[in-house]
């Protein structure tokens, strides 16, 4: 017999998936359009002038970073907006009054973010294959890293939503922090092109490790050692998880 926790979890996940799939033209379509534009402008129109990057043609080099950019942003914004809406409209109370442990509430929201992130990643990849000739070097890394990245940034989105006091608070982090980290995380260039100071600074950017390992999964080219990348990703993920659990234990943003 399916346990009551499993039913509660599946109910939360179902609700999350329905929430973003109902408005697919706002949640699933834009990343595909954006990616197509990136490939047309930076790949087809300008790529030839840029030449190759890390022994890959520029379009092939850029592709993993663009896919990962969509995964990261969609996971983050899905959980941040869903959780904050639930707080704002007070329907978070539906799960808070029910016999649902706090960790399961986090898991429900994070799973929703992961599903959207991975789904968007797959759709963007479908667009990307029309513009690139890149193969798959290591399916394991190509599949695992988007999954881990979406978990990590779903947790980050959850933390953001718990602290948020207005809708502005959940849009300012993606705009002022997440997007710069993505752009400076090696989507469009390799680390060795940067001056040593900036290259050193970039090593504190977890997105660098996420994108590097994902690119490694397709091309075998890496900016950072794969082992170190997983260490960083798991480390940050653990930190965010403990942070989220600590917030929930205190009831911050949820319980009066």
């Amino acid at each position: 017999m399916i346990s009551s926790y499993a039913i509660a979890y599946l109910t939360m996940v179902r609700r999350e998936v329905l929430r973003f799939s109902r408005v697919w033209f706002r949640t699933l379509l834009p990343p595909m359009v954006n990616t197509a534009l990136y490939f047309i402008i930076f790949g087809s129109l300008m790529g030839g002038r840029i030449g190759s990057m890390a022994s890959l043609n520029y379009t092939d080099f850029m592709m993993p970073g663009l896919v990962m950019m969509s995964v990261v942003i969609c996971s983050y914004t899905n959980v941040a907006s869903s959780m904050y809406s639930a707080r704002f409209q007070k329907y978070i109370e539906e799960v808070l009054v029910a016999p649902v442990p706090m960790w399961l509430i986090v898991l429900g929201f994070v799973t929703g973010g992961v599903i959207r992130g991975v789904l968007v990643g797959a759709l963007v990849l479908l667009v990307a294959v029309n513009f690139t000739s890149i193969g798959v070097f290591s399916p394991f890394h190509a599949l695992l890293m988007p999954l881990l990245a979406s978990v990590l940034f779903s947790l980050a989105g959850f933390i953001n939503a718990v602290y948020a006091k207005s809708f502005d608070d959940i849009s300012v982090i993606p705009t002022l922090l997440l997007t710069p980290l993505i752009y400076l995380g090696g989507v469009f260039y390799t680390l060795d092109l940067l001056p040593s100071f900036w290259a050193g600074l970039s090593r504190f950017n977890p997105l660098l490790y996420v994108i590097s390992t994902f690119r490694y999964g397709f091309s075998g080219v890496e900016d950072a050692p794969v082992g170190l990348s997983y260490l960083v990703v798991f480390g940050v993920m653990l930190m965010f998880f403990l942070w989220a659990v600590a917030l929930l234990r205190r009831g911050r943003g949820l319980i009066g």
């Binding site: 039913i7 509660a8 809406s85 639930a86 539906e94």
Partner: peptide, 26 residues
């Protein structure tokens, strides 16, 4: 509750069925 504490975009049926789900009812 005293205030409206449900999603404005869900259907009536989903709001009620989801609440059952949160209580572990299939």
């Amino acid at each position: 509750a005293q205030d409206y504490n449900f999603s404005q975009f869900e259907t009536v049926e989903n709001v009620v069925l989801d609440q059952a789900g949160f209580y572990g009812i299939g």
